[in-house]
C-alpha cells in the first residue's frame, strides 16, 4: 500500500501545485520520484511529529494541502493534541496518513502496533477516519480527502497487501460496498485484514454458509444508507472485523449505529484485539492467528452461530 501511496502522491503533486508531502523521516527511496516532481513541496520533518503536525495545520490554513506521513502510532497518538487542535478544531485540510497500521509491524512490538488509533481519533470532531482495504481504495480515499478539503485520517498497511476491490466498485470516502455477496451473514470490515474475510467466505461457501463481506472503508462518517440497505436486505447476523482493539473501533461504531437507529433485528459480533498489549510476537499472519483474527477464526465463529 505504501508504494501505491507514493505513486498517488506523485501524481497528485504533478496535478496540483498545492499538494505537499511531510514525512517523519521515513520512506527512504520511496519518494524519489515525488521529489523529482515537486522538490520544494517535500519536507522531511525529522523525528519530531508534534512539530510536523502543527506545521501541516499552519500550511493548510495558508491554502496548501499537506499530507503528513509516518508510522501510525507516531502520526496519531504521538501528536494527538496537535491533531485535535491544529487540524481538527481549525478544520485545516490536512490529510494524516499512518503506515504500518494495526499489526502490519507485528514483529516490531507494542511500540509499533496501532490498535487504539481509530478509537481515539474518531472521538475528535471534524475528522474523517478511513481504513482502506487495499491500494485501490487507498488512492480513491487520498484523492477524495485532498479534493474535499476535509481533515482526514487514512490508516494504511505496509506492503504486499492484495487488491481486494474491483476499481469500479470504489465510491470514495463515506461509502461502503460489498466485496462478496451472501445470505443472512454479513461481515463488515476495514483494512487489509478483509483478505482474511474473503478467504473465510470462500471456505464457508463450500460448507454451505454464504458469508457476505463488505468493505466499510470509512469509519467516520459511517455509510448510513449502505447499513440500512443491509438491514433491509435481511442480513441479521453481522460480524465486524478490524485489526484494532475491540474497544472503540469499527465494531463499537456499528454498535452505536444500531443503538442510535433503534435497530433490534441485527445481532452484531465483534472481532478485534482483546483489551491487552500483544507481547508474543511473530509476523502479521502469526499474530492475526494468535489473536483470533484470521480466516480460521472467522470460520470458527460462523460455525458456532
Amino acid at each position: 500500500m505504501r508504494n501505491a501511496f507514493a505513486k498517488a502522491m506523485t501524481d497528485l503533486a504533478r496535478e496540483r501545485s498545492d499538494v505537499c508531502l511531510l514525512s517523519g523521516d521515513i520512506g527512504n527511496r520511496m519518494f524519489d520520484l515525488y521529489k523529482e516532481v515537486a522538490p520544494e513541496r517535500f519536507l522531511n520533518c525529522g523525528i519530531a511529529e508534534a512539530n510536523m503536525m502543527s506545521m501541516a495545520s499552519g500550511m493548510a490554513l495558508s491554502g496548501l494541502r499537506p499530507v503528513v506521513y509516518t508510522i501510525t502510532p507516531f502520526t496519531t497518538t504521538r501528536c494527538l493534541e496537535q491533531i485535535r487542535i491544529g487540524v481538527a478544531y481549525h478544520e485545516a485540510p490536512v490529510v494524516i496518513v499512518g503506515t504500518g497500521s494495526g499489526l502490519s509491524y507485528a514483529e516490531l512490538g507494542a511500540t509499533h502496533h496501532s490498535l487504539e488509533d481509530i478509537a481515539i481519533l474518531r472521538s475528535i470532531p471534524n475528522l474523517h477516519i478511513c481504513a482502506p482495504a487495499d491500494s485501490l481504495e487507498l488512492v480513491v480515499h487520498l484523492r477524495d480527502a485532498i479534493t474535499q478539503a476535509i481533515p482526514t485520517y487514512i490508516r494504511i498497511g505496509k506492503k504486499g497487501e492484495p487488491d481486494l476491490h474491483q476499481e469500479s466498485t470504489i465510491l470514495g470516502i463515506g461509502k461502503a460496498h460489498l466485496l462478496q455477496s451472501g445470505k443472512k451473514f454479513l461481515l463488515l470490515g476495514v483494512g487489509p485484514i478483509l483478505s482474511e474475510a474473503l478467504t473465510a467466505s470462500e471456505n464457508l461457501r463450500r460448507r454451505g454458509i454464504d458469508l457476505a463481506v463488505a468493505s466499510v472503508g470509512t469509519i467516520k462518517p459511517l455509510d448510513h444508507e449502505f447499513l440500512l440497505r443491509m438491514v433491509d436486505e435481511g442480513y441479521d447476523n453481522w460480524i465486524s472485523l478490524e485489526e484494532h482493539h475491540r474497544i472503540g473501533g469499527l465494531g463499537s461504531s456499528l454498535l452505536e449505529w444500531l443503538a442510535d437507529n433503534c435497530i433490534n433485528s441485527v445481532r452484531l459480533r465483534r472481532m478485534g484485539i482483546k483489551d491487552h498489549f500483544v507481547h508474543h510476537l511473530g509476523g502479521q499472519s502469526y499474530v492475526r492467528g494468535s489473536e483470533g483474527l484470521n480466516a480460521d477464526s472467522i470460520i470458527e465463529l460462523l460455525e458456532s452461530i
Partner: peptide, 25 residues
Amino acid sequence: VEAATGSLGHGLPMALGMAIAQRIQ
C-alpha cells in the same frame, strides 16, 4: 485572529508552517 492558541507549544510550529507556505507559494 490567525490561530486558536491557549495550549502552549502549538503556535510557533503553526506559524512556522505558515512561513513555509509563504515560501512555497
